[in-house]
Design a protein around this nucleic acid. Structure first.
Lengths: 178, 178
DNA sequence: TGACAATAATTGCCCAGACAATTAATATTT
DNA sequence: AAATATTAATTGTCTGGGCAATTATTGTCA
């Protein structure tokens, strides 16, 4: 569905060879046309919208909701697991947890089996906040998609996932080429 | 093209009334489906790709390319103008310029007409770097769009712009409601 | 077993952005 | 003209990420 339904594809030398494009050209480059620029603006707008809807003191911030949610659904319990699950630096996660702990939303408990690891537990307030997360986020994202049809939404997600796939493929090559 | 070509639109009470949607639901919320989450990952991947292609010491970072470019094309000359053009906080811009100046890419010149304002001038190195910007950015973004058709690219940009329009409409209401 | 490698968490040092307060200079208003 | 508002730039303080080093602990292997 993503690639093979289009003519004049090059020899397809590898497994997932993608047709190169030249939509952007240096001579005519415009920031407003840039998907990176557009996404940057969208993200900061979404973040702001989320935080104006979680305004109680002690509420998590926009970057904090993902770790909180992953903890709540049991997708991760240690710092390293959480960092991996959120695709975040371990050091950044340590400090994010410092802030969550300072807000009384979680607790660090040193593991007894492996004394290197720290298990993270949500407090009562943390669980309460984590339960709100999907409500706030789904509402905010729905608001930003006002006027979209379901097909358009699916298409958008598909495009974003394809870009991510490209990014991962590039990162994988990255070291060898260039 | 964006809104009026779909049936069962509500009475359209205002000028730009958009049909509300409920694609995301709290009960079934998944982070991987979230456009915010996807965009966050894409942005950090793009930023990383850009910076691995501008690796000479003294090169601008990904967040620095926009101010540099705006300066180069003459879209802004003062700190405040630049901050507005990049939709960035003035304080953040001051410090970003500190770093650009430390790299020898730009220079601050106090205005003589209005002694409050500081005019920013690119140095020779700054101009050279600014000229590279569109090449690097268009290459990186093209790479991330590998496999896209031109129509898909146009559609993607249209979706992003519609989301941004929604964000601005929400922010405009923001104060009154809620 | 003892040296060495791998892993977990933390810390320091960067860059980055938001918000609030401050200072200096210019506009406006009475 | 004097008081007041507005604007430009800066600074302080906070959250947030990335990268590199460090420390403690656990695994591995000769």
């Amino acid at each position: 569905m993503s690639d093979a339904d289009n003519p004049q594809v090059p020899p397809a030398s590898g497994d997932t060879e993608r047709r190169p494009v030249d939509f952007y050209r240096a001579e005519t480059y415009k920031a407003e046309e840039s998907i990176g620029y557009l996404m940057r603006r969208i993200l900061s707008a979404v973040a702001q919208a989320v935080e104006t809807r979680m305004c109680e003191p002690g509420s998590p911030t926009f970057p904090q909701w993902l770790p909180l949610y992953k903890l709540h659904v049991g997708a991760a319990t240690t710092v390293a697991e959480l960092a991996r699950a959120c695709e975040l630096d371990a050091g950044a996660m340590t400090r994010l947890l410092d802030r969550l702990e300072a807000k009384g939303l979680c607790r660090r408990v040193r593991s007894l089996e492996d004394r290197r690891v720290v298990n993270i537990e949500l407090t009562e307030e943390g669980r309460a906040a984590a339960q709100e997360v999907p409500y706030v986020l789904s509402r905010v994202q729905n608001e930003h998609l006002a006027g979209f049809t379901r097909e358009e939404w699916e298409q958008l997600k598909g495009y974003l996932r394809r870009i991510l796939d490209n990014a991962q493929a590039l990162a994988a090559r990255g070291d060898k080429n260039d």
